Amino acid sequence: MTITIERVETPVPAVSEFITAHHAELVGTAPPESCHALPFERLLAPGVRLFAAFEDDRAVASGALATVDDDHEELKSMRTDPGMRGRGLGRMMLTFLIEDAARRGIRRLSLETGSDDFFIPARTLYAGAGFVECAAFGRYLPDPHSTFMTLSPVHSMSPPKPAHTR
């Protein structure tokens, strides 16, 4: 399985369909006013960096980073194709997004995810990467259907390179 992660800056039908399927999966996990997933067009807006993982030409994972303020971004639209779950694609995308933020000097990453049992795997993934629960941030209001998490400081998840000694 060869997976490539690419930034998506223009409408790509495979990614649009993937995000639409993401929204369909979320129906019933919370009332509409508590659903905060961005439609595909908003993921292409200024201030948002959308990425998709592809196997051949098929989108198999997605994730985005949206500006909250100068050194704070929000993780958005994390999804793995249901038929590909359990293969590490979510962790791969999350690591990629954390690395992207760290390279650009972002000091804090936050996210909103559901509190429904459907989201237990997502919350477990985020906690495993160092995210901790926090209060609502940015434009969010406290909501019993939401779990807010944050990672600060943001740092590279790659192992440090060995120092060269003489």
Rank of each mutant, 00 (worst) to 15 (best):
S34H: 10
C35Q: 15
C35D: 15
H36D: 12
L38M: 15
L38Y: 13
L38N: 11
P39A: 15
E41L: 08
R42I: 00
R42C: 09
L43I: 13
L43D: 09
L43C: 15
L44S: 03
A45D: 15
P46I: 06
P46L: 06
P46G: 08
P46M: 04
G47T: 10
G47C: 12
V48F: 03
R49H: 15
R49L: 15
L50W: 00
F51V: 01
F51D: 01
A52V: 05
A53M: 06
A53V: 01
F54E: 07
F54N: 04
D57P: 05
R58T: 15
R58C: 13
R58S: 13
A59Q: 06
V60L: 07
V60N: 04
V60T: 11
A61H: 00
A61C: 13
A61M: 09
A61W: 01
A61Y: 01
S62R: 01
G63R: 00
A64Q: 07
A64F: 05
L65K: 00
L65V: 04
L65F: 02
L65E: 04
T67Q: 13
V68F: 05
V68M: 10
D69C: 02
D69A: 02
D69Q: 07
D69H: 11
D70I: 09
H72C: 07
E73Q: 15
E73P: 00
E73Y: 14
E74F: 03
E74Y: 01
S77P: 11
S77N: 11
S77F: 07
S77K: 04
S77E: 03
M78E: 05
R79Q: 14
T80D: 06
T80P: 04
T80N: 04
D81K: 00
P82A: 08
P82M: 10
G83C: 09
R85C: 10
G86L: 12
R87G: 06
G88L: 10
G88F: 11
G88T: 14
L89H: 10
L89D: 02
G90N: 09
G90I: 11
G90E: 07
M92D: 10
M92C: 07
M93E: 03
L94R: 00
T95H: 04
T95I: 03
F96S: 08
F96P: 04
L97I: 12
L97C: 09
L97Y: 02
L97Q: 07
L97H: 03
I98R: 02
I98T: 11
I98H: 04
D100V: 13
